[in-house]
Design a binder for these strands. Structure first.
Lengths: 131, 131
DNA sequence: CCTTGCCTTGACGCGGACGTCAACGTCTAG
DNA sequence: CTAGACGTTGACGTCCGCGTCAAGGCAAGG
């Protein structure tokens, strides 16, 4: 298949696919007229990349998975380096969750403080009919 | 005080302060030689900006707080528009936490799956002495 | 006088993942 | 023959919050 079809079947854009090629993640045979030609393996590879993107991996981080698929494994995460990336990203996610949770708390506190200052009466819920 | 001192007392850089000025968040009087001159109000204003940054607001989103301080209020969050920003960011944080939690779960599942495929024997912990 | 350290403006760089445009070749249907 | 849909490469734009020069002016100490 050509690039347009691959883009459509994977739900991405031709621009993205060419970009992946630039980054060395995707390679393409060329037909006589210079058009890129892809097969089912490429389809799987792109799907893998896109799936990994949705769970927060950068393109660089998908490289081990791509290499793993290229070296004949059935899944991209059959190799130790891929699993290592999973571990790292899991740690990153946990760290981010912790930070974000803290931030959420600070935000909530700031909001509460501002509301308290705005309406210093603690017994009346906002939306009082008469000032 | 001049820009270097302001930067030092707020824990930021002169470059950042000039950038804030570019964005219209900070204004400075000029002394005879063209140097920027700041007062204590500016110090508070910059501190407010930096604090808001740490809780995830973009510079653009700090603008209501800055305007609020400029219009004479004691705190930047004394105005309705600032409070509205708090609310929005709180919602954003919650949405992000939810997404990130989901992602974390997917990552954990992928890792577990990969490990299971790697060592199909569920009774032996990794690190077996003999293959 | 010279050096040092502060200040000025302006302009480009970065990371990430593409979008968008230019300017063109190619294939297919009518 | 021509229009339209597809493909090609290359290069610059986007967002954000500055960092990092470059190329100087200004003030104070020795």
């Amino acid at each position: 298949m050509r690039i347009g079809e691959l883009a459509q079947r994977t739900g991405t854009t031709t621009r993205a696919l060419r970009f992946y090629e630039d980054q060395g993640l995707l390679t393409a045979r060329r037909s006589a007229n210079g058009y890129r030609e892809y097969d089912e393996d490429d389809l799987q590879l792109v799907k893998e990349i896109l799936t990994l993107q949705t769970v927060g991996l950068t393109l660089e981080e998908t490289r081990p998975f791509v290499d793993c698929l290229r070296s004949g494994h059935e899944t991209g995460d059959s190799c130790a380096s891929s699993i290592e990336v999973y571990r790292r990203k899991l740690e990153e996610a946990d760290a981010l969750l912790a930070r974000l949770g803290g931030i959420r708390g600070e935000l909530a506190a700031k909001l509460a403080g501002a509301l308290a200052r705005q309406a210093p009466d603690p017994c009346v819920v906002p939306g009082a009919p008469r000032p």
